[in-house]
Amino acid sequence: MVEAKIGGIESENNQGKSGQGKSGQGKHDQGKAEEHQASERREFLGLLAGATGAVGAAAFSWPLIDSLNPAKDVLALASLEVNLESLEEGQSITVKWRGRPVFIRHRTQEETKQAEETDWKKLRDPQSDSQRVKNPQYIVVVGICTHLGCVPLGQKEVAQRGEYGGWFCPCHGSHYDESGRARKGPAPLNLAVPPYEFIKDATIRIG
């Protein structure tokens, strides 16, 4: 019974709403223009209030979103010092910096020579070897394939270094050369070089 009652009210109410303008007209003869003006102002104020609310909601959403960006402690993660004295020619080590692998390889003279003599201008991401190293003996790169983020092989076994003697990513078959440059496969860019510096002859600080 209650339901039926409410339903009745609702439809009556709808009628009432559409009839409201009419009744206003009935009361005041000159009311029509006034009513029109008033309704315009009302609509403007409604829009203004809605827009202000939208601005407020947008402003409030920013802290929520920004809180998911890297926090201060993450950004301030320590730089990493690596002693390379014990790294012999032809050997590689992987260190963890900011949660990602960094490849450091002590290149043989042959590898260095090959990396330097490559005709780099024709590569997909043209970079000379000298642009990518601080000391030609050592190549330091972030060990993350520029295709889709896998960790390439070649640090441990020479056989896994791919067709260009650097690294080989098994996920989708990208080949990198002795300088970490993308040579074959889907990788669009060379392996990234992290910011680092030699603080002693054979000690580097990454970050």
Binding site: W62, P63, L64, D66, S67, N69, A71, K72, D73, V74
Partner: peptide, 13 residues
Amino acid sequence: QRIMRDVNYGWLL
């Protein structure tokens, strides 16, 4: 404490 000090707007949230 990390939320209050390091997370962006963590103190506010």
